[in-house]
Design a protein around this nucleic acid. Structure first.
Length: 197
DNA sequence: GTTCTAGAAC
DNA sequence: GTTCTAGAAC
């Protein structure tokens, strides 16, 4: 028989590090598989799990942890990120792009999404994925810039509002179609794909 | 952010 | 019985 030990002491939870996965963008920025280009101020990478045919991220080299840290001092940077994103988008003339920020990103460090509006990707799987790009959870880059210009900062979206946005019924972003589930929505959006001769 | 999977929904 | 969603992850 082994000596009885104090289980509470042995299994006391050890304080964990801040979620390792949330730092993933730092690794992605250095991943040659994802790297697109860089300049003095920003790095452009492919999203590791693209939610559309084309899905890029523009990240400042300056460590800005999130949108709520953005001030008027960052206005030039925000405009530059937008310009870099537009340039990327224009290099794919057959697609329409959305440029914007998630109201409550999972990944640390500010990142601008540059994503084609087909949303046709095997990596787009969940209702949450869908609603982060097709509801007001997605803050267009132009609106973020004008809000910082007008009030010097971004007003955070409340957790209650976030929850409601994530609960938005699955609606097609291009028509009034309401899908009963994700597989139905994913097959429906194929209808809106540009047809090539 | 993703993966995994229990149990809800069908 | 199978499909699909939603919550835990030590």
């Amino acid at each position: 028989m082994s000596t009885k030990r104090n289980q509470d002491e042995d299994t006391k939870p050890v304080k964990k590090h801040a979620s390792y996965w949330a730092m993933g963008l730092l690794l992605s920025m250095k991943d040659p598989e994802l790297f697109i280009k860089e300049d003095d101020a920003v790095v452009v990478i492919k999203d590791k799990y693209p939610k559309a045919q084309y899905h890029f991220l523009v990240l400042p080299k300056e460590n800005i942890t999130s949108l709520v840290k953005v001030t008027k001092e960052h206005l030039q940077l925000l405009k530059h990120m937008n310009k870099v994103g537009q340039d990327i988008a224009e290099s794919y003339p057959n697609s329409v792009f959305k440029l914007g920020y998630h109201a409550q990103p999972s990944m640390s460090r500010l990142h601008l999404h540059v994503i084609s509006d087909d949303f046709n990707s095997t990596c787009l799987k969940t209702k949450k994925h869908w609603n982060t790009f097709t509801t007001d959870f997605f803050l267009p880059s132009s609106k973020v810039i004008s809000e910082v210009e007008m009030q010097g900062k971004i007003t955070p979206v409340t957790n209650d509002k976030i929850k409601k946005l994530m609960d938005t019924p699955l609606k097609c972003h291009k028509c009034s179609f309401l899908a009963k589930n994700m597989p139905t929505l994913k097959s429906h959006i194929l209808v809106h794909l540009k047809k090539f001769i």
